[in-house]
Design a binder for these strands. Structure first.
Lengths: 226, 226
DNA sequence: GCGACGCAATTTGAATACAAAATACAGTTA
DNA sequence: TAACTGTATTTTGTATTCAAATTGCGTCGC
């Protein structure tokens, strides 16, 4: 039996294969199950996903536009290697966008959106206290996503998200140290407060600094590795 | 007979069809020969370009990621309409990136790059004096491209360029008035001077303002139209 | 005459087939 | 034996084919 609840009655969603593949591949790359530098074997992966080469190749090309994979004509695609140079290159761009997000969000967020972000922050705090990394990461992403949402500029969200994947992938590998984790929590605490106070300038600054600190942690981890 | 000049001996360039198609379609959209809102007829355009649907569709999907076309599942692609809302949305994002470009370029540009930009500026000035619109536009683009180049951050260039297409298309339609043209020249003059002086803060501000003025002109033209 | 329904024609999405280029490998020669 | 050359295999790029969904048109019913 269907519940008699009044659904908003939206159009049903139809997802082209290429879109699902983009999402799946991106997740694999960000989470490292397709390691940086790895060649992308078309036939094998098509087999795995149960699709033909056409939509798969479309997906790979889209990810190439995002910078997560590199395609070389007649030589196939590979997961773009993570280099310090690349991260340093992405950082200022994403930094500018994060700052802009802060400014816009502080001005444009609805009270409900602020309340929701605070709720997400509270939930994330509890995961932090339980030292539940996976849940923490999930909430962390949700909070940043909600901030983009609150800024009310889809172009900004899309652009920032797309650049963000390139950093997230590196952050995924650099395992979160206890001290960095605590610092990140404090930073989140601070910018959540700035949002509640609707202090645009402060929120912008805090978000950029948060990113800068994130990058510093990754930089450290990369240096250690080498 | 070949000249015995010592070529730098670079690898020869191989361009996949999809890349050529992206460029060709983008130019058509920016210059208006594929008007905003127009449905993209796959078969017809494939015929025109003499290619099959596979690479053509790949190109369309890439342009969709850039925001120049909108694809609706099972209903085909159309050139994204130009709306004031869209422009207002793109503006702050591109503004932040232009400002960043200014900051980085003022710091990182080589003397040769600055000289080259000044040369381009001089050439553009002569086209302005001759009221040669097409040549002016070409040089204008070249200058902004050279600025991105001078900033030395490929991710920044790619992101800014991609957003820039969406504005350029609107600017192409809004025909340049004499007063706006003169103002634009003055703005170029000013930021070229700021670059030569390597005043990062000033250059950043001027570039953002230049964009803001550009947008204001487009806004005016759009309002008049309606 | 107006609107709803059903079928045909078109168009889109995905799979397969074919061509061209790259890689792998073996045979030959110095 | 080591290096080069030529051939076979694999992989990539593009074209073609097939299936599914949408659009357009004509007919039927009211």
């Amino acid at each position: 039996m269907n519940k008699p609840e009044a659904q908003p009655l939206r159009p049903i969603e139809r997802v082209p294969l290429r879109a699902s593949l983009v999402d799946a591949l991106r997740q694999m790359i960000v989470e490292g199950s397709l390691p940086a530098g790895e060649k992308i074997n078309e036939r094998a992966l098509c087999e795995v996903f149960g699709v033909s080469r056409t939509p798969f190749r479309e997906a790979v090309n889209l990810l190439a536009a995002e910078g997560l994979v590199t395609v070389t004509p007649h030589r196939g695609a590979a997961v773009t290697p993570i280099t310090l140079a690349e991260l340093e290159e992405v950082f200022p761009v994403l930094g500018a966008l994060e700052a802009l997000t802060g400014e816009l969000a502080a001005r444009a967020a609805t009270d409900a959106q602020i309340a929701q972000i605070e709720a997400l922050h509270a939930e994330m705090t509890s995961h932090y206290e339980a030292r539940d990394r996976a849940a923490y990461f999930r909430l962390n992403e949700a909070i940043h996503g909600a901030l983009y949402e609150a800024a009310g500029n889809p172009t900004l969200s899309r652009t920032a998200l797309s650049l963000g994947f390139r950093l997230r992938r590196a952050r995924y590998q650099a395992n979160l140290t206890e001290t960095r984790w605590a610092a990140a929590m404090a930073e989140h605490e601070a910018f959540t407060a700035a949002l509640r106070a609707r202090d645009a300038g402060l929120l912008a600054r805090l978000l950029r600094e948060h990113l800068e600190n994130k990058l510093a942690a990754v930089r450290l981890a990369l240096a250690e590795e080498a």
